[in-house]
Design a protein around this nucleic acid. Structure first.
Length: 678
DNA sequence: CCGCCTCGAGTTCT
DNA sequence: CTCGAGGCGG
């Protein structure tokens, strides 16, 4: 190698580093790249090639050095020059106002400008820069001593290795390392596919990634960071107000959250917490509140600290969406179809406005996959802000006393040995006469989507069942007022009401009856398809396997299930009772999905309507040839949106660009197509 | 045969 | 709402 070649290589390497650092900044910090990924990769490749040829040209701040450092034996402790304090919390508007009043009165001011920032749910880190270069980064640790995680922080591409513009001689900047929600989901999907344990939430996943001793593992994790606080500073100066400091950070090349806002008064700050709360769900990172800081930094010294919390800043916390509680034991329930479903019995805990004491665990595999044990501390959340869900155990809080769950080998209700088919996740009790199943069949028959017998709910159904009065759906029509009054101690009026409901149910259309029978694999959609195709219960009962399979969406397994149902003596007895009670087991004219003004259209109804019930709208659409579905997909033509609609349906409809209408819009839509409106 | 789309079934609390 | 699994198109 000649000296000239070496000099050229060195010059080119320097050039490339500065070009790559610039594009890194455009891409990772500003989120607005100027070149394509391929062009970027080509630049990286060129630099890497030079560095392989001339290893002496590799510098610690080279972009190629973000990945690939050797694993560490352990993290080295780092004493924070300035302790990393925690913030005080407030949980309500009043408390935030009180914090502000106190700050103002200590300052002897009427008002003090503030800065609002989203409070990122991640891990606080402190980074030291010297002469514009990243030299060290540490975790918060206990606030006084943290761990040196520099090698891992280097792998986060939005963290600048070399600063832009004029930086002070040395300073410390603080920020939050977090994992994006999308990255977290993808990571967990990958881990699930490989049978590895899942992370409970993005925060835990980020913590795991940051504390990886092998930076090469860290580098593969979707970490990112926001910066929001100046630590110490030497050989230079920083602006006087916090909002200017944040702007200055951005100029230096740090990633600063765009939601940060200067608030002139406490009223603005309150509005700010409200606004951030509104966009919270749309962000690709978790926040658990807002941080509010006094803007003028000279006032920080005046306000000082109480204990280890600054008086010049506080955290306004939103109600938690997750909670930790004790999983007392795992019980098993038996469903209508005989499926054994394990569920967690929890130490009651408040999550998102409700006290949760139980949560389903779905099946044995799910429990095993999550490694949930009886006695564990577990993280609970409400999916869709409703359904309680066990996210993960907190393995670090185990005592060794925890008990592994085993699916019982006999049905907990009737004692019949249970079955689990190879390759299937569900365990079930094969005894159709199992009281749990029989009782739930009655309940299902009375449910809204079936015969809609209100008042025949869990309690009464169980009482009638144990008294031996209603053992199957057919018995519902044999109950007398005397029995209700004398055996069930119902009031005269309630008994009459119930009997009225039962009487009215006899008019329900065939599809409701078919659904109510509880044939395995026959839900609302399939029941509707059967009613349309055969128009009478008897014809369904007589249908051959191939007749059944000719119906769209019915395949061999569903056909077999229907076929068998109508060849079971117990089931035939039930149907006989229904027939004698005078139920509607045939329908005169059925509109096939291929006829009517709405033929070929698929609609979804979500939320609460005003003028009609949801069922009413569905019936209206169906009666004119439309297909009514429960989930939005590419095939959906129209989504009718009522008040408080299902979030995923709305989101999916938006993603797919499907027409959405309210009630008035629906009327217009129907008129356009020449369909009847009432 | 695989992957996508639906459907079915179980479930919580106010 | 979630998960499992059946149906069916590519």
């Amino acid at each position: 190698m000649t000296d000239v070649e070496f000099q050229n290589a060195r010059q080119r390497a320097e050039e490339l580093r500065s070009i790559i650092n610039y594009h890194n900044y455009r891409y990772y910090v500003l989120d607005s790249p100027e070149i394509s990924d391929a062009e970027y990769d080509a630049l990286m490749e060129e630099l890497r090639t030079i560095e392989v040829e001339y290893p002496q040209l590799v510098t610690p701040d080279s972009p190629t050095q973000r990945v690939g450092a050797e694993p560490l034996p352990s993290f080295e402790p780092v004493q924070h020059r300035l302790p990393m304090l925690s913030l005080g919390n407030v949980f309500s508007e009043q408390e935030l106002r009180a914090w502000y009043q106190r700050a103002c009165s200590l300052l002897g001011e009427d008002e003090a400008a503030l800065v609002g920032e989203p409070k990122i749910d991640g891990l606080a880190v402190a980074l030291v820069y010297e002469n514009g270069r990243f030299v060290q980064g540490a975790t918060r640790g206990n606030g006084l001593v943290g761990e040196n995680v520099s090698a891992n922080l280097r792998t986060i591409k939005s963290i600048p290795i070399v600063l832009r513009g004029q930086a002070p001689e040395s300073f410390e900047i603080r920020g939050e390392v977090y994992m994006t929600r999308s990255g977290f989901e993808q990571l967990n999907n990958e881990r699930a596919a490989q049978g590895q344990p899942l992370f409970a939430n993005p925060r835990n996943a980020a913590a795991g990634a940051l504390r990886q001793l092998d930076p090469r593992v860290s580098a593969t994790r979707p970490l990112n960071a926001w910066f929001y606080q100046l630590g110490w500073l030497e050989g230079g100066s920083a602006p006087d107000t916090h909002h200017e400091v944040l702007r200055w950070f951005a100029e230096l090349g740090f990633r600063v959250n765009p939601l940060n806002r200067r608030c002139a008064t406490i009223v603005d700050a309150l509005r700010y917490t409200h606004d951030v709360g509104h966009v919270r769900d749309t962000l690709d990172y978790d926040i658990d509140g807002c941080v509010v800081k006094v803007d003028r930094r000279d006032w920080w010294d005046e306000l000082g600290y109480v204990g280890r919390e600054p008086r010049w800043a506080t955290a306004y916390k939103y109600p938690p969406q997750q909670a930790t509680t004790r999983l007392l034991q795992i019980d098993v329930s038996v469903g209508r179809t005989g499926v054994l479903t394990p569920y967690a019995v929890l130490e009651p805990v408040r999550v998102a406005g409700a006290t949760i004491s139980q949560a389903t665990l779905f099946n044995e595999d799910n429990i095993r996959r999550k490694d949930v044990r009886q006695g564990d501390w577990v993280i609970i959340e409400r999916r869709g802000e409703v359904i309680p869900y066990v996210v993960a155990p907190v393995a670090s809080r185990r005592t060794g006393e925890e008990q592994l769950f085993e699916m019982p080998d006999r049905c907990p209700v009737c004692g019949t040995p249970v079955q689990r088919r190879p390759g299937e996740a569900m365990t079930f009790c094969p005894n159709p006469r199992c009281p749990a199943q029989a009782y739930r069949r009655v309940l299902h028959f009375a449910s809204r989507a079936a015969l809609d017998i209100q008042r025949l709910g869990e309690k009464l159904a169980l009482a009638l069942f144990t008294a031996g009065l209603v053992q199957d759906p057919g018995d519902v029509y044999l109950v007398t007022k005397d029995q209700l009054v004398q055996v069930e101690r119902l009031g005269e009026k309630s008994a009459e009401n119930l009997l009225g409901q039962i009487e009215a149910s006899k008019q329900k259309p065939l599809r409701n009856v078919l659904y109510g029978l509880g044939i395995r694999h026959v839900g609302e959609q399939t029941a509707d398809a059967l009613a349309r195709a055969f128009a009478s219960l008897d014809r369904v009962a007589e249908a051959s396997l191939s007749d059944l399979e000719a119906v769209p969406d019915i395949g061999p397994i569903v056909a077999q299930s229907i076929f068998e149902f109508f060849r079971d003596a117990d089931n035939l007895r039930v149907i006989d009772k229904l027939r004698r009670a005078g139920l509607c087991l045939a329908q005169e004219r059925v509109t096939p999905a291929t006829e009517g003004p709405l033929a070929g259209t698929t609609a979804v109804v979500t939320g609460t309507l005003g003028r009609w019930t949801r069922e009413g709208v569905q019936d209206l659409l169906r009666s004119q040839g439309a297909t009514v579905s429960d989930s939005v997909s590419r095939k959906t033509d129209l989504v009718v949106v009522g008040a408080s609609p299902g979030g995923t349906k709305l989101k999916r409809a938006q993603e797919l660009g499907i027409q959405m209408v309210d009630e008035d819009g629906l009327v217009a839509w129907l008129r356009e197509r020449g369909a009847a409106v009432e």
